[in-house]
Design a protein around this nucleic acid. Sequence first.
DNA 1: TCGTAACTTGACTCATCGGGTCAGCTTACC
DNA 2: GGTAAGCTGACCCGATGAGTCAAGTTACGA
Lengths: 200, 200
Amino acid sequence: MAGAAPSKSRLRADARRNSEQIRAAAIGAFQGQGLTVPLEEVAKAAGVSKATIFNRFGGRIGLIEAVIEEVVASELFAVIDHTRTIDDVGERIAYYLTAIRDLQYRQPAFNDVLLQTYPHSQQLMEICRVGSEANEELIAAARASGALRPEFTAADLHALVVDNALALKHGKRPPRDDYDRRTIYLLDGIRGRSSPSGER
Amino acid sequence: MAGAAPSKSRLRADARRNSEQIRAAAIGAFQGQGLTVPLEEVAKAAGVSKATIFNRFGGRIGLIEAVIEEVVASELFAVIDHTRTIDDVGERIAYYLTAIRDLQYRQPAFNDVLLQTYPHSQQLMEICRVGSEANEELIAAARASGALRPEFTAADLHALVVDNALALKHGKRPPRDDYDRRTIYLLDGIRGRSSPSGER
DNA sequence: TCGTAACTTGACTCATCGGGTCAGCTTACC
DNA sequence: GGTAAGCTGACCCGATGAGTCAAGTTACGA
């Protein structure tokens, strides 16, 4: 712990308190409205002025990077990790796509990461990269097992998710049960004919 | 023909010529870039100033209404009409969805109509209404014949098309063959199990 | 070949939006 | 209580594109 945040101890007490309030407000705002929420709104929720966000975090990207772990990265990585533990490839795909779409529905910020709204943030780009790798890994496994139709590519999967991100970002969110039903249509459309439900 | 455009004869020759040039430029611009193309650009393509568009058409909506028939309505109605001539319901659905998606891909303006970008235009709203009715008619037929999965609703079809409009409008267009492949995934995802190919 | 009304247009205003900055005041801390 | 750290309101900025208008130009009838 020592040395991890030496700069913090150099902060005055009020500054440290404000930083914490801003972080908390940012987490709430990003989760509710995505990463593009006006900084003014975050500031208001934190009870400080917009300029203080610039003082403490240097701007939107600094603020995002200070909280992105809690807002989306941890959840995304949990999904990816859990996906890897599923043996049956058909199930693995169903779980992955469902979980990603769930994340997209619940966390507008996730879509902003996915759509690379802030390409200047290394950290955000890194999250994207990890996601893409998970995609490709999954498609490779699917191809080997025939769980997906053979012509289905990683680019197809990517497009599926990105298009959904755009629809959620720019359109109006459907009721949850409609959304979930449509997830099933998607899964059925990309599944291979061979293993309709696999073993077990 | 007489009496159809009495106001036209009251226009001075240069005004009539400009109107025609603006119409032509608008058709090109709307087809290429959608209904949201800056009027300045239309004016430039027509070789007139932006103010002339306001003089002749009153603004964007007037201009849109003066050319929407040629830009999207005729094609859309042709698709709807042709859809009605197809006997086999499975085929009818496949044709309709494929044709609509083709229209969406080729004509950005079609997506603008669909997304109701200009709700103040009666004419545009009317086109939407006709489209919605075609959707519902199709879903009713599908439900009766079992060509679609029974839980698939008209709202699902609508969402499918609208989401695609948003993806095309805000994302980058995929290569045509990828797009068409994904159309097939969609169709396979919503088809009923009973009639995989129907009679013949 | 005028007179004039119709027409066109460059240059303008307006409005929206949110990022980013800074002088000057306030406050924590030694 | 001195002082540097910190905060903030008020500002500027840049981008965008719709819509307007005074002043100049042109078609056209007489």
